[in-house]
Design a protein around this nucleic acid. Sequence first.
DNA 1: CTGTTAGCGCTTTCAC
DNA 2: GTGAAAGCGCTAACAG
Lengths: 332, 332
Amino acid sequence: MSITIKEIAEKANVSIATVSRALNNSPKVKEATKELIMNLAQEMNYSPNFVARTLVKKKTNVIGLILPEVAGEFFPEIIRGVDEISYLNKYHLFVASSHSERNTVDSILGFMSKSMVDGVILMLPSISEQIRDLIKRIKIPIVLINGYNNIEQVSSVGIDNFQGAYSITNFLIKNKGYNEIAFIKGPETNADARLRLKGYKAALKDNNIKINDEWIVEGNFTIKSGELAASRLLSLIKKPSAIFAANDMMAAGCYRVVDAMGLKIPDDVAVVGFDHIPLSEFLSPKLTTVHVPADEIGRKAAQLLLEIMGSENNIKPKHIKISTGLIIGKSC
Amino acid sequence: MSITIKEIAEKANVSIATVSRALNNSPKVKEATKELIMNLAQEMNYSPNFVARTLVKKKTNVIGLILPEVAGEFFPEIIRGVDEISYLNKYHLFVASSHSERNTVDSILGFMSKSMVDGVILMLPSISEQIRDLIKRIKIPIVLINGYNNIEQVSSVGIDNFQGAYSITNFLIKNKGYNEIAFIKGPETNADARLRLKGYKAALKDNNIKINDEWIVEGNFTIKSGELAASRLLSLIKKPSAIFAANDMMAAGCYRVVDAMGLKIPDDVAVVGFDHIPLSEFLSPKLTTVHVPADEIGRKAAQLLLEIMGSENNIKPKHIKISTGLIIGKSC
DNA sequence: CTGTTAGCGCTTTCAC
DNA sequence: GTGAAAGCGCTAACAG
C-alpha cells in the first residue's frame, strides 16, 4: 500500500490537515513544521494520491484528445501540437483513438466526461446525429477539430478545405495552364472531403472549364485507393493531363501507378495533393500540395480549450478557421 | 453539477447502497427495483463518477504509455499496437510524451503512478541512474520498451538491435559483395544506437574486413544529421561504396545528398537503413532496411503488462526480444 | 499557526 | 433484498 498523509501526520505528531497544508506549501504553516513534514514525506517516499485530490477538487489537470486514429502521417502532428500547448500550461494529455468507429466515440467521450478530464478536444471524420446529441449534452468544455462548423454551440478549429482546394486548382489552371484536371475524391461521408470537392469544382467553374464527371473518381484517403483511382483515370480514352488527389496519400498512390505504367510526372501527367504530409517531401518529384498545418491546428485547439476552461461563465463559442498554403513542388 | 447516486436514491425511495448495487447489476437486488433504478438513471442522464469509484476500488482501468515523442514515423506505430491490445481488453490508454527530456520522465511517471493508471509502459532513449531508481521504486506494474535489458527486475520488450545490424551488414557483404561499408551512428547516449554499431562492427570482423574509423561517423537519428554524415563520407578521398545508416531517417538524408551531388543509388553508392518506417517504402529506389515491427512491440508490451497486472503476486520479470527482418529494396 | 470536522461520490461489509 | 454506516485519501471551512 502507498503511504498516506495520515501516516506522515502520526510520525510528525501533527494533524493530517497540517500535513496537507505543508505539502501544498501553504503560507500559514510554521517553517519548522513545514520542513519537518517535507523531510518526512521525502524519507517515507510519499506521493500524493491524485484520485483523492481530484475527487475533492474536481479538477484533474488532464485534457483529453480523441482522434480517429493515432498513427499515420497526419494525426501525430495534431497530437504534437496539442501536447505542446498543454505541456506549457501544466496539463497532462490523455490521447485516445476512436478507431474510426462511431460507437467507440461515445464510449470514450463518456469515459472522459466521467470526471477523468477537465476538457476534451475531439476530432471526427464526420458527426452523426447521435454524436451530435452526445456532444451537446456533455458538460465539460469541448473543442471540435474539423473543416466545417456544423455545431454552432460548440467551439471548433479547422482548416479552410474549400479555399485550399480552390487555390491549388486555380494554380494548376492559371499558373500552369492545365485544363484537363481530374479529381480523386475522399469518402462521401467525410465532410472535409466534400468541401475539397466543392473547391475543385468552383475553381473549374470560375475559369469556365466544364466539369467532366468521368474525371471525378472516388477514393477513401488511402494509398491503395489512390492507386485504383489513378489506374482508372489513366486508362481512359480521354486522359486528364493533371490529377488532383484530395489528400497526399492518394497522390502517393498515383505516383506508384504512374511509375508502374512507365510514365513520368509531370511530363506525362501532373499530380497534386492536399495535406502536405512529411512523406510528400520525399516523393520524387516533390509533390505540389496544399499545406495543412496539423500541429498548428492542434495548438490552436488546445489554446481554445484552455481559454474555455479558464473562463468561468460559458463564453460564446468560437470557430477558428486556419488557412492553408500552397507548397510548390515539381509535380506539375 | 453532475447527478449522483444520492439523487437517484431519493427519487427511487431507496438507499444509495441499493442504487449502487443496481447500477452494478448485483444479483441481490430485486428485478423490479433494479429496473426502476436503471430507468431513473437513464432519464436523469446519470453517469457514474469514475474518480470516486477509483478511489475506493483502487483500479482505474487505464494503462499509461510514455514515449520520448508522440509524432514521427516510428512511435505512432507503437501506440497503435498498445492501443489495439488495451482496447481489446477494455482498458483505456493514456499516452504521454516525455519530450525527450529526462526530468520530464519522472514528472510523468510520477503523475501516472499516483494512482492514475493501473500500469505503465515506458520507452526511453536511455536510462539514467535517476530514472532507474525511480522505476525500481514505482509500485505499479511497469513494462519497459527498449533494445537492451538493463534492469533485471523490470519486464521489458525490445528488438534485437545487434542481430538486425549484423545481418544487414552481413547481407551487404555476403550477398551483394560490398567491402567498403560506412556506418552512420546514432547518438552515443542511445542504447539502441550503440548496439547497432556493435552489430555492424561484428559483421565486418566476422568477414575479415578491417574497420575503418574514418567511415564511422556520428549522427543523431535526424534527416539533417544523415545529410551531414553523407556529405562527409562522400567527400572523402577514399569513399565507401555503401553506407549503412543506423536508422531510416538518416538514410533518407543520404538520399538527398546523393541526389544533390548528381550521384545515383545504388550505382554510385549503396544506402541501407534500419527501422523500416513507412517512408522507406517511398524513397526511390526503395530502401533496403531492417524491419522493426513497431506495432508488434507495442502489442507485446501491452500483453506483457496486462499479464503482470492480472497476476496477484509478482511474477518473475520477463524479457521479450523481438527479432527483426530484412527488407530488400533496390538501394544496394 | 494548527486541529477538528465535514464531506467529494461511490463501494462494501454488517445488520436486519 | 435492502439500509446504515464506515471508509478510500485528500481538501477546506471553521474554530481555536
